[in-house]
């Protein structure tokens, strides 16, 4: 077993002992299920209304009526939920001095960071996989285009991974878990608002640059079914950058 695998195994083990994962997972799935239900009911009532007007059963676009709004709402839910998942990852190690053990064992800092990030990613992917039940149920009762749903999930994976990397950085910056959660939440909210600023400024060089920096535009394209290497590179480089900063922050603390 390599050191990275050892870190992943330990992180997953401790995650399932603490109540955080269960609470976060349950709340996440509950909100997701409620939202999906809301949009499905909304689609149903629209169908009834159209039937009364036209007198015949209409062909509803579930992609537009259910999946797209659900994916958009997910961005905000993840912004709230993922910082809770990431807050303890380094803050707790530092608070309880177990960080001293990691730093005096023959394991590199980047192995620790990558191991912890991957463990968080696995937890998140597990949560996400459970949401797959909604498209599966809908697929048995109606038909829709699977492609935008799958690219939407790709967007969720990439954006969520970026949120997780941001959370890892925030957790590396403090010993206090509440501060870590709030730092990553605040930062993500700011970057999201940056995207709104970009769209307000419109199609100008400044507006485009600002819009590019925010994660929301890139996610929007994936949800609409467009897979562009530009967007993939944005997320992957963002993840690497956040983890690199986390490395620098943790390294610099040893010098104080």
């Amino acid at each position: 077993m390599t050191p990275v695998q050892a870190i992943i195994a330990k992180e997953l083990r401790t995650a399932f002992v603490s109540p955080i994962v269960y609470v976060v997972g349950a709340v996440f799935l509950l909100i997701y299920g409620f939202l999906a239900y809301l949009y499905v009911v909304n689609a149903g009532s629209q169908a009834v209304r159209l039937m009364q007007l036209q007198g015949a059963a209409p062909q509803l676009n579930l992609n537009e009526l259910v999946f797209r709004p659900t994916f958009y709402s997910m961005a905000i839910i993840l912004m709230l939920v993922l910082p809770i998942l990431t807050m303890r990852v380094f803050a707790e190690e530092r608070k309880l001095r177990t960080f001293e053990l990691l730093m005096t064992c023959p394991i590199r800092m980047n192995e620790v960071i990558i191991g912890k990030f991957l463990a968080l990613l696995f937890l998140y992917l597990g949560m996400l996989a459970l949401t797959g039940i909604v498209p599966l149920i809908l697929a048995t009762y109606s038909s829709f285009d699977w492609n935008p749903v799958l690219t939407g999930y790709l967007g969720l994976v990439l954006m969520g991974a970026l949120f997780l990397a941001t959370g890892v950085l925030a957790s590396a910056m403090t010993e206090n878990q509440v501060v870590a959660a709030f730092l990553s939440f605040g930062f993500l909210l700011l970057v999201w608002l940056l995207g709104l600023l970009g769209s307000v400024l419109g199609d100008t060089p400044v507006g485009n640059t600002i819009a590019y920096l925010s994660f929301i535009d890139h996610y929007d394209r994936l949800v609409r079914g467009l897979v562009d290497s530009k967007d993939l590179i944005y997320y992957l480089s963002g993840i690497v950058l956040m983890l690199f900063f986390a490395h620098r922050v943790l390294d610099s603390q040893r010098w104080k």
């Binding site: 077993m1 050191p3 695998q5 050892a6 870190i7 195994a9 330990k10 083990r13 401790t14 002992v17 603490s18 309880l96 001095r97 177990t98 960080f99 001293e100 053990l101 990691l102 005096t104 064992c105 023959p106 394991i107």
Partner: peptide, 29 residues
């Protein structure tokens, strides 16, 4: 080449003794 016991023993409270020592052994290669 070192074994280091810090001032506060660096323990993961939520692991059992065997799990903890297994983890330490693995990151020690």
């Amino acid at each position: 080449r070192i074994g280091y016991l810090p001032e506060n023993p660096p323990l993961y409270q939520e692991l059992t003794v065997t799990e903890y020592l297994t983890f330490v052994g693995r990151i020690k290669g």
